[in-house]
């Protein structure tokens, strides 16, 4: 495809043309080698989209069965009522045996099909270790260029939110009353403290109140043990009770999201940059492994290099290609 098409496509994506957004998402999912250059070009063209800088990327994660899809649906509708547009990436696991997947999020969502300001894309993890789909990082960037708020929804406690921290500005952990494991993980510092905690299915007041009290306790323990996000010591993780089916607590969640976005304001570029550095290294090590990282001087050096180059205007995909070339030529020089 000639470059002019690409910028046309990028323009259409930025105007939230659904067909163009869908095409762009198809492209970033394309694993054929001849698609890579176009993906790199597209993401570079979308990098400075006005929506992207001003927008908000929200990661929504939690154990299976806590009602994340229904919550995402309720959240998206409430955000639309506030006249902001929403793009959703819903990530579901692929079957290890068949490679296939059942992407069931839409079944729990009710939405207006004629609404131009809401877009939902389901992605399968396709065997990626770590929970996020191969294309999730890129997909978030496509949607961020088109919509005010991007929600990325993943399942899991433990592995996947390590990934999601690098994609999302705000990480929301969703649990339900009686999620004892999560409390233990938090207390033990096994999981990072999320930016917002949601107790969904809070229909039964007593249970929900107890769950909230337990979470407060767990957060205190975790803080006392020195866990949490080092760069963000002055954010107090709010705990919000919601009932996605009844629609209660959703406005409070949006307010909390806005407050966190506001709180991030000055540090957001640095935080997103950190995520991009991580993504670059992930991409590179996925291709070339430990040996690749070691050959180019090790993780710390590559992180510093990525930080500098990305600040200079390179994109994660572009930089990864440079690094790959350097690695390959370095390989040629060793016996």
């Amino acid at each position: 495809m000639p470059p002019s098409d690409l910028s046309d496509d990028a323009r259409l994506v930025m105007s939230a043309d659904k067909a163009a957004v869908s095409r762009a998402l198809n492209l970033v999912e394309d694993r054929r080698s001849d698609a890579q250059a176009r993906v790199t070009g597209l993401l570079a063209a979308l990098k400075d989209a006005p929506k992207a800088a001003a927008g908000h990327r929200v990661g929504l994660t939690g154990p299976p069965g806590v009602g994340k899809s229904t919550l995402t649906s309720a959240l998206a509708r409430a955000v639309r009522r506030r006249d902001r547009s929403v793009g959703v990436v819903a990530v579901d696991p692929s079957s290890i045996r068949s490679g296939g997947s059942l992407l069931g999020d839409r079944a729990r969502m009710s939405f207006d099909p004629s609404d131009a300001g809401l877009f939902v894309r389901s992605l399968a993890t396709a065997g990626e270790v770590g929970g996020l789909a191969y294309a999730a990082n890129s997909a978030v960037r496509v949607l961020a260029a088109a919509y005010d708020i991007v929600v990325i929804e993943t399942t899991g406690v433990g592995q996947s939110e390590i990934d999601i921290v690098h994609v999302a500005d705000t990480v929301v952990l969703v649990i339900q009353p009686g999620s004892g494991d999560v409390l233990q993980f938090l207390k033990a510092g096994i999981m990072e403290i999320p930016d917002i905690l949601v107790v969904n299915k809070s229909d039964q007041d007593e249970l929900a109140q107890r769950a909230i009290a337990d979470l407060r306790g767990a957060l205190r323990t975790a803080h006392a043990a020195g866990a949490g996000r080092g760069q963000d010591a002055d954010w107090d993780t709010p705990i919000i009770a919601t009932s996605a089916t009844k629609g209660t607590g959703i406005d409070a969640l949006i307010d909390a999201l806005d407050a966190h976005r506001q709180h991030l304001n000055a540090m957001l570029p640095a935080r997103r940059r950190q995520g991009e550095v991580q993504w670059t290294l992930d991409l590179f090590s996925r291709k070339h492994g430990e040996h690749g990282l070691a050959t180019l001087g090790g993780v710390a050096r590559l992180q510093a290099r990525a930080k500098r180059d990305l600040a200079g205007g390179d994109t994660p995909l572009g930089l990864c290609e440079h690094l790959s070339r350097e690695y390959v030529s370095a390989l040629g020089k060793t016996p």
Binding site: R97, G100, L102
Partner: peptide, 16 residues
């Protein structure tokens, strides 16, 4: 159909 398609390796979007 949705389950069978998943089992043979399709990515399946089922809307209910």
């Amino acid at each position: 159909i949705a389950i069978k398609a998943r089992d043979v390796g399709f990515d399946v979007v089922y809307e209910g």
